[in-house]
Design a protein around this nucleic acid. Structure first.
Length: 230
DNA sequence: AGAAAGATGCCCT
DNA sequence: GGGCATCTTTCTT
């Protein structure tokens, strides 16, 4: 089986020393591998989102550097792992040189190595493995990525978390990349900075941007005209 | 010190 | 389709 992953060289740091929009599209089809004491799990990336730094209201770095997002301001090729919604982890890859804060959120992938281990980590995933890493939090769960991987150098051959060039299918050119608005972003939602492999079943289902509506204890008058209230 | 929101996923109706 | 789980970060008193 594909033990080529263990001996393969990670992508060079220059790969990540580019704008997030470029890196995001180039990352599709590449391999993300995570090695733990339990074993190796690897996916080919099928869906990503680009986030700029200071110029992007949807970015965690928009309001400046904090203890949480410090890795985003560091050198390219490192993982920025954050915790959200009280239970989920998501992983980003930092782009551009130190001092800038752009990154690419990894949203989905297809498990190509360690499927048994990944399935054990995600017992609720259905058969077939399609849902093992569909969605950013699911991807982290399948790979066993948590905050201890924050700052990991994915360009380091000795790192437990690495990014490798994807296998080039014979007789095929570059995969067809689709593009659309980012998911779960209520600001700058008009920027089509989400990229995915067209037609891939492991891509997360598109949810049109519906901001979370807080339930109101009392109904206010004047809202009976059918106007959307949020 | 306290509160509110959050780059979500799961289960139930 | 919608509510809920669950907690960290950051902003506001």
């Amino acid at each position: 089986m594909g033990s080529w992953i263990a001996g393969s060289s990670p992508l060079p740091r220059e790969f990540f020393d580019r704008p997030a929009l470029t890196v995001a599209q180039q990352l599709l089809g590449c391999v993300l591998a995570h090695e733990t004491a339990d074993g190796l799990v690897a996916v080919t990336l099928t869906e990503v989102e680009a986030y700029e730094g200071a110029a992007d209201p949807a970015s965690h770095a928009y309001r400046g550097r904090t203890a949480r997002n410090a890795v985003m301001f560091g050198p390219p090729g490192h993982a920025y792992v954050y915790f959200t919604y009280g239970m989920h982890f998501c992983v980003n890859l930092v782009c551009l040189p130190e001092g800038t804060a752009s990154a690419v959120l990894l949203r989905a992938g297809r498990v190509i190595e360690g499927e048994g281990l990944a399935a054990g980590r995600r017992p609720v995933a259905g058969p077939g493995g399609r849902d093992l890493a569909r969605g950013p939090a699911r991807l982290c769960q399948a790979l066993g990525i948590d905050r201890s991987r924050d700052g990991a150098d994915v360009c380091d051959r000795g790192s437990p978390l690495r990014v490798l060039a994807g296998p080039r299918p014979q007789g095929q050119g570059r995969p067809t990349v689709s593009q659309g608005p980012r998911v779960g972003v209520n600001s700058a939602a008009e920027r089509p900075w989400r990229f995915w492999l067209a037609g891939d079943p492991t891509v997360s289902v598109y949810r049109p941007h519906v901001p979370r509506v807080r339930t109101k204890p009392v109904s206010s008058p004047g809202a009976g005209d059918g106007t959307m209230q949020r």
